[in-house]
Structure formats: C-alpha cells, structure tokens
Amino acid sequence: MFSFWIFLSSGLFLGWSLGANDASNIFGTAVGTKMVKFRTAALISAVFVIIGAVSAGEGAAQTLNDLGSVNAPAGAFMVGLAAALSIYWMTLSKISVSTSQAIVGAIVGWNLYSGKPTDISLFSTIAGTWIFCPILSAILAVIIYQLARFIITRAKISLLKQDFYTRVGLILAGAFGAYALGANNIANVMGVFIPSNPLQPLTFPGGFRLTSEQVLFLLGALAIAVGIVTYSGNVMQTVGRNICLMSPLAAWVVVVAQSLVLFLFASKGLHLFLEEHGLPGIPLVPVSSSQAVIGAVIGIGLLKGGHGINWNLIRRIFIGWVATPVIAAAVCFISLFFLENVFNQTVYH
C-alpha cells in the first residue's frame, strides 16, 4: 500500500500542474480583468473540479483504460511521470501542450513496451477528438456570441447592468467550466491508476458512498484543487493580461464554449442518450481545455473578420498534436526500460 502512494505521486503531481495551468482557462480572463476576485475564482473552481471529477469522471477514464490498461502501479507511475515530463519540455519549447495528448502518448508507450496491442480504431477516435475539439469549440463560440450579441442589442441593457450580469455569468460559467474540467480531465490524472487501484470504497456519515474509483478521483481532484489554490493565480493574471483586449462578454463566451466542449466529451448521460436515439454518441475522451479556449478565441476572431488572429499559435497547436504524444510515448518507453532493468520494478503484468 505504501508503495502505491509513492507511485501515485506522479499522478498527483500531474493533477497539481493541471490545476495550476488549466484553471486559468476557466477564470483567467475574469480574474485578469478584475471582474472576479482570485479568492472567489479559486474557491469555486476547486469545489466544482472535485464535484465534476468524483461524480462524472468515470466515462473519459474508461476510454483511457480501454486504450491501455496499465496494470502495475510502477508502470502507472511512469506513464504519469512521462506525461508530466513531456508537458514540461513542451512548455519550455512554447509549443501548445495538452495533458490529454501527453497521457495518451505515454499509454501507447506503455503498450509498446509491455507488448500489449493498441486499439488503433480507439486511438484514431481519440486523435480525431483532438482535431474536432477546437473546431467544435470555435463553432459553439460563434453561435453563443451571436446569440448573446442579439439579446444584448435587443434588450438594450444598460452598461452597469451588463457589467453585473457579465460578472454573474463569468462566475456561473466558471463553476460549470470547473465541473467539466474535473469530469473530463480527471482521467488524465488518475485514469492510469485505476487498474492497480488498491483503495477501498468510502462511506461518509449519512450513507453517502464513494466507490474505490471515486476515492481515487477524489485524491486526484484534491491535487488539482491544491494546484488551483497555490499556483494558478499568476497564470490567471498572465492569461487575463494577454487577452484583455477581449471584451468581458467575449471572455464569457469563450469560457462557456470551452466548458460545453469539455462537458460534451465527458458526459456519460448525453453519450447514452444519443446512442439510445440512434445518433452517433460523442466519444468520452479527455480533451485539452487550452486548445478548446484557443478554438473559441479563433472562432470569435474569424467572426470579426479574421484580423489579428495569431496563426503562429495555430501552427504550434498542429505541432503539438503530433509532437506531444510521440514525445510522451518515447519518454515513457525509455523510462519504463530503466525502471524495470535498473530499479527492478514490475511495470506490467
């Protein structure tokens, strides 16, 4: 059990860095433009990330397990660490990096090392969502933006009332965004530890019960929450300053579009509903919140005539789509070799 906690540390670290970085996608503009205080933003995102992860994290995590069931704690540790290291290096090279892409690459690296087959059709579905995610986010942003613009123009809402509604909207969208981030991205943080999870189900006074998987998600979500509270403040300020040219309403649209995308790719209920009605179900896959944000910003940018869009940023996303999983797979493969042969750890069964 003790060794499990040591091995879990890479996942917790990944959770911390996810909280530190990705919370800024949800509340960055609101905090950076001083529409919402950091304390409020941190509290709301921490609480809703935990709720989302524990109550709805299962779907996307299942997909990652189907891709590669990392059945030894040491193997899961290295998958998490390889993903974290790849993210670190890619961030240094200023290439748009996604935790989801890194973890998928690392799982494929583990599959290659352990000789387990990789489900190519599932991998294609996952890779397809990476491309689809920012495009869908852009489409949603354009629709919501047009709708909001129409309502505000028709309703003739005064400037100060608009400011008040935008603040409320940013907080509500932030809470939803944090919930969706927890539900969608907990798979990146804790997904690989599910097959080797030794944790017991937890029953709270009053009969509220968490399954062993949910207890694992709760730990991961707490790590994300710690990341949000301890380190996301600076990132939020930076994000807010970088896109402060955007009006608060456009910022709200970006958060809503991004949150909807994350929610769509995490909602088991919606997935089942679509399948029941003979429609193609949206795959439950962890997607990148940063890329969803970029997609939404570009969507609004294109709607406004396409001036001032940073095409260099889009080029970096394309590089990231290919480079992140490849680097993570290579790092994981090499590290597993060392972990098994130098440190004598069982990395697969």
Binding site: K34, M35, L159
Partner: peptide, 16 residues
C-alpha cells in the same frame, strides 16, 4: 467625484 470613487473603489466596469 462620487462616480469616479464608486467606479474604482467598487471595481465596477473594470475594462471601461
């Protein structure tokens, strides 16, 4: 003076 004070002290319309 009141308007300016309210705008800044209550951080209303921060972008404007």
């Amino acid at each position: 003076r009141d308007i300016e004070n309210d705008l800044y002290s209550q951080n209303l319309l921060p972008n404007l």
